[in-house]
């Protein structure tokens, strides 16, 4: 009555069921996105209808906003220079934040001593509304892109730093013993376990920061700039030019969507397990 191993370990049906479930969950995602799209259309129509009854100074109308947008991009009042300035600040800022955030995040995640020393400052700075640094930066660095880039870096570094540090601790805690038990060398441990393990945390932080740089760009340009999307927003707002304001708002939003979308794509390409693991559980 001893159980035969072949019989005891057969899981063909279980594996098949898992594959089928995966297939189904992929189908469901497709449907979800089309629902989002319909909702946007409904909202635009509603906006158009309500906007027709009000002074355009309040919420304008999608058609007028679209017209302004067309003029800004391809018509008489092109604002490509402002877009370029804003994009430059944003992406330089993001790039610097990625480097600083990763380096300090890794240091804080790996070393208990560094963590102990810096923990209060990290909590303090992360809790501070960083907008208050903006006037100071303008005084120190002048009203130009240097101050704005530094501000964007200040804003965007934290999510990356905190995520990388948390990921580093988490991965070390979960897998360091496994690595030691497998006899991996120190370099192999970092190359084969820590780096790939931290990658999804890094990408999560980067995704949050990619949204924050848009905010950083707009806020800093509203305060310390005579150029860029934020400056345009401020000047249209003070002139009650709501349609133009909303057109610039759309451009800024598109930047945010592109940034976050690209990083979601990067996560799915470079760290698919992090996305799928969450979905399956």
């Amino acid at each position: 009555m001893a159980v035969s191993l072949e019989e005891g370990f057969s899981d063909a049906t279980e594996l098949q069921a898992i594959d089928n479930a995966l297939q189904r969950s992929r189908l469901r995602t497709g449907f979800k996105y089309s629902g989002t799209l319909y909702l946007i259309l409904v909202l635009l129509v509603l906006w158009q209808i309500i906007g027709s009854f009000l002074d355009p100074i309040y919420i304008s109308k999608p058609t007028i906003v679209a017209n302004n947008l067309w003029n800004m991009l391809f018509g008489k009042t092109q604002i490509w220079h402002d877009i370029a300035v804003s994009a430059f600040e944003m992406y330089i800022g993001l790039a610097i934040a990625l480097v600083i955030g990763s380096v300090f995040g890794l240091a804080i995640g790996r070393s208990r001593i560094i963590r102990g020393i810096t923990a209060p400052y990290v909590v303090f700075l992360n809790a501070t509304p960083l907008v208050i640094t903006l006037p100071l930066l303008a005084i120190w660095l002048g009203v130009d892109e240097k101050a704005r880039i530094v501000f964007i870096v200040l804003l965007a570094t934290w999510p990356i730093l905190l995520n990388v540090a948390a990921g580093c601790r988490n991965v070390s805690g979960r897998f360091t013993e496994l690595g030691h038990s497998a006899g991996l060398s120190r370099t192999d441990l970092i190359r084969k376990i820590i780096s790939p393990g931290v990658l999804p945390y890094f990408l999560t932080g980067a995704r949050i920061s990619a949204g924050l740089v848009v905010i950083g760009m707009v806020v800093s340009e509203m305060e310390v700039s005579l150029v860029g999307l934020g400056y345009l927003l401020a000047s249209y707002a003070s002139g009650f030019q709501t349609s133009k304001l909303l057109a610039v708002f759309v451009i800024s939003t598109v930047f945010g969507l592109i940034n976050v979308g690209l990083l979601s794509l990067a996560t799915r390409t470079w760290a698919p397990w992090a996305v799928l693991e969450r979905k399956e559980r």
């Binding site: 005891g8 057969s10 899981d11 594996l15 399956e280």
Partner: peptide, 15 residues
């Protein structure tokens, strides 16, 4: 351990 069919699966796909 009877899992040669699962060799190319990802861990999260398994029970």
């Amino acid at each position: 351990v009877g899992l040669e069919d699962a060799a190319d699966h990802a861990p999260y796909q398994l029970s």
